Structure formats: structure tokens, C-alpha cells
Amino acid sequence: MSVKLEGNIFVTGSNRGIGLELVKQLAETTGEESHIYACCREPEGTRAEALRNLTTRYPGKITTIKLDLSDEESISTAVQAVSKQIEDGGLNLLINNAAINQPAPPAPLSATRKKDMMEVYEVNVVGPFLLAKMFLPLLQRATERDTPEECKGDKIRAAIINISTIISSMEKCPETFPMAQMYPYRASKAALNMLTCCQAEDFKKHNILVTALHPGWVQTEMGGEYAPLTTQESVEGMLRVMSSLSKKDSGMLLDWKGNIIPW
């Protein structure tokens, strides 16, 4: 059996782009008992208007949460707020989608500062690390609903999906580097891949799956207007892949079609 896209779902970076589309499609396709916690830095700001419209379109299905992944206190406050609402239900799916990319592409070495490296790493790696660590009790609670027979099988009640990228691949670096150097982004996503591997090993004893996904080159603020994929196409593909994941996929880097990307 595989991951079921149901229950309590936490999505970061959900006010625009891929994150917003994830919330939209999850709201459309999950059952009545499912609930989506949609996070962004300023839920009441102008850049979150589309997200607020979604919460109105799906009343009672989406809760917006204020979350700044560069601020540990903000992360802790968000986790506490979700914990109070979930209570005994547990967290079924954590999607670490939020990320930053600086300086502006192509971000060559000459334009990249120490500050860029540190800030990108803090948001893209440390943020997901802290979220997984703080949410671990809730993820475990979701798995505790399994019967002994289900625990022996391949059923997954709790999963962490880290949104990564093909340009994190060291093997493919000679192929992808000429298009955009992006030192901070590449290095941070490679670190996120290692975080995925470590947590996949660490959390297997809890029956929690941890997998990294490449969404493709997508038409977003980061991907640009010439990207071949729309957010709808990318998210449709990723959700199909998520729903097909099983224990053998934990600790892997896959693309939106389910293909394995080499480290």
C-alpha cells in the first residue's frame, strides 16, 4: 500500500506558485475529513490574497498559518497552533515547499555574498529540519492509528515531502550548471537531499516516509515565464507521485513523473 493524501496536511510557502497550487488541488481532491494548514510569512498581506480566496472557496477546509522559516520562534508558534487544532488526530503529511533563491539568477560566483549563502541555507534547510523535528510527535501520532497488521505491511499514514530540484544533483551538475550557477540554491537543495536521507533512516522506525521531489521547471516567480510546465501540471504530477509512494521510495529524490534523479 502507499501514501494516502488525506487527514491533516501542512504545506509551507503556500501563498503563491507551487505551494498555492498544492493547497488548491489538495482542497479539491481530499475528503471531507481532511484539513490543510497553509503557511506563509504574511497571511494577511497583499501577496496572500489568492490564498485567502481559496480559504473562502473551501470553507472549513483550509487554515492559514503565519510561518517564517528563518525564525525558530515563528516555527515553534506555528507548530503549537497546529497541535492545538489537530489534538489527537496526528499530522499525516508535511510538505516542505517554501524556499528562497538569492541573488537573482543566474547568480554567478561574482554576485554571491556570504549573506546569500547563509540566508538561503537557513530557509531551505534549517527550516525544514526544525519543522520535521518539532512535528515528529504529531507525525508519530498519525502512525499510531495503524493496527499491528498494518504496521507489518507497506501502509504509510505519515510522510514528509521535501520539494527539491534537479539542479541539486551533483551528478547532473555539469549538465545543468551552464544554465544557472545559483550557488546558494544548489548547495542548499543538495543539503536538503541529505536531510531527506538522514530523516528517512531515522524515522523508518516510526513508519514515517521521507522523500524529496523535483517539481520540474515550472512557471513561477522563481522558474520564470519560459519554463515549460504550469503549476497545475507540476502539482498534478507530484500529487500522483505522492499517492503512489511506498516504503521503498523513502530517502529517494524523484521528479514529478516518478523518475529517480541521481544524487
Score class of each variant (00 low, 15 high):
residue 3 V to L: 14
residue 3 V to M: 11
residue 4 K to P: 03
residue 4 K to F: 06
residue 10 F to R: 05
residue 25 Q to V: 04
residue 26 L to E: 04
residue 28 E to S: 06
residue 40 C to S: 14
residue 42 E to T: 15
residue 43 P to S: 14
residue 52 R to D: 02
residue 54 L to Q: 06
residue 59 P to M: 09
residue 59 P to T: 09
residue 59 P to A: 09
residue 77 T to N: 12
residue 81 A to K: 12
residue 82 V to P: 05
residue 87 E to M: 06
residue 88 D to N: 13
residue 89 G to M: 04
residue 91 L to D: 03
residue 94 L to R: 02
residue 96 N to Q: 07
residue 97 N to S: 10
residue 102 Q to W: 13
residue 102 Q to F: 14
residue 114 K to I: 15
residue 114 K to A: 15
residue 115 K to W: 09
residue 119 E to Y: 03
residue 119 E to V: 04
residue 123 V to I: 06
residue 129 F to I: 05
residue 130 L to Q: 08
residue 133 K to C: 10
residue 133 K to G: 09
residue 135 F to I: 10
residue 135 F to N: 04
residue 139 L to A: 06
residue 145 R to E: 11
residue 146 D to A: 12
residue 151 C to N: 10
residue 159 A to E: 02
residue 170 M to G: 12
residue 170 M to R: 15
residue 181 Q to R: 09
residue 182 M to P: 01
residue 192 L to Y: 03
residue 193 N to L: 06
residue 194 M to E: 11
residue 195 L to G: 05
residue 201 E to L: 12
residue 205 K to V: 13
residue 207 N to W: 03
residue 209 L to Q: 04
residue 210 V to T: 08
residue 215 P to D: 00
residue 217 W to Y: 14
residue 222 M to L: 15
residue 235 V to C: 05
residue 235 V to S: 05
residue 235 V to G: 03
residue 239 L to F: 00
residue 240 R to G: 09
residue 246 S to D: 13
residue 252 M to A: 14
residue 255 D to C: 09
residue 258 G to Q: 08
residue 259 N to K: 15
